[in-house]
Design a protein around this nucleic acid. Structure first.
Lengths: 181, 181
DNA sequence: ACCTGAACACCGTTCAAGT
DNA sequence: ACCTGAACACCGTTCAAGT
């Protein structure tokens, strides 16, 4: 990549992070280009879709969350590890308002730039779930795909401001439904 | 209301129903006016917000769902009544793609045209829940507001096409978390 | 009293013209 | 090779001008 292009690329990522933090993942692409003081075409040249931009921005975070699953798996009872990881995923999506909808769209669309990251996360969750199931601590009749659905539903709910005061309670109720009893 | 206004009002509702059915509740207001062959200002005069239009369209359905709760309550064991009603609510929101997000926004915004309908639904659910709780068939530590959150989460999930194949399973898992065991 | 549609301030996306 | 921003086809919402 040419030096000026590299500079634009990096600067766009920095500004996009700010704008997404302020307005959520549906923020106007135009606004990002404007605030980066770059032509709109430059933004689209580097990131042909909104999802490509989100992916470039969050790739390392998705990787870290997957690694985190392994580390929790190694340092905690399987049920605690699963629940802790679920908490961290929900906290992450909450910090990145608007990210769960494109993720849910990407999980079964291999053309999406977010596809690989979503599959990685689903696998990380499935692995934690499988270990808890092997220990008899999570209900046996749940798949990784179903766990991902539940995560997505909780993540979306967490984005709704009218739900804020009940977030912890609902998390406990739903997490309880995943564990065996 | 003047006769020509009445005619426009009714015609707009008919067309809006079609357009929302085709494109979901976020369909373009312009598109509705266009297809109704009415000026855009006429649409906004009758329905100053999208929510006012949705409310006029769905008011009777919301009322019917609330009535349905009472009728199920009278004709079934309390746990079955609760679960059946939940199923009907999810089916309804599924038929009206995009409706759950404005509903979730309206439930704590008394200025929203959808507010009253949402509160009515929440009350209907709370009543079913309370009866099941009194019978020891639903977990006692759940409020009507929490039930509404869970309904909203399930409804949103049901809108995601990647989730379609698992909808029944997830419903059972979550409904199971509401009942006692 | 009611209707119309231009006007305004936005979008996402593309692409000819420039450096 | 890369950048720019006008151009196109859209939005939601308002409001002056008409009937």
């Amino acid at each position: 990549m040419r030096a000026d292009a590299r500079k634009n690329y990096d600067h766009l990522l920095t500004i996009a992070r700010e704008v997404f933090a302020e307005h959520g993942a549906e923020a106007a692409m135009r606004d990002i280009a404007r605030r980066a003081e770059v032509g709109l075409g430059t933004l689209y040249r580097h990131f042909p879709t909104r999802e490509a931009l989100l992916e470039a921005l969050l790739r390392s975070s998705f990787g870290a969350l997957a690694e985190r699953a392994k580390s929790l798996e190694a340092s905690m009872p399987s049920d605690q590890a699963l629940v802790s990881w679920l908490k961290e995923i929900i906290a992450f999506t909450h910090e990145h308002r608007g990210i769960i909808a494109p993720m849910m769209g990407a999980i079964e669309d291999s053309d999406s730039a977010l596809h690989a990251s979503c599959v990685t996360l689903r696998s990380a969750g499935a692995s934690l779930l499988a270990r808890a199931q092997a220990d008899g601590k999570a209900r046996a009749d749940l798949s990784g795909a179903e766990l991902f659905d539940i995560i997505a539903a909780l993540a979306w709910l967490r984005e709704q401001s009218s739900h804020a005061s009940r977030a912890e309670r609902i998390f406990k109720v739903i997490a309880g439904a995943i564990l065996s009893h």
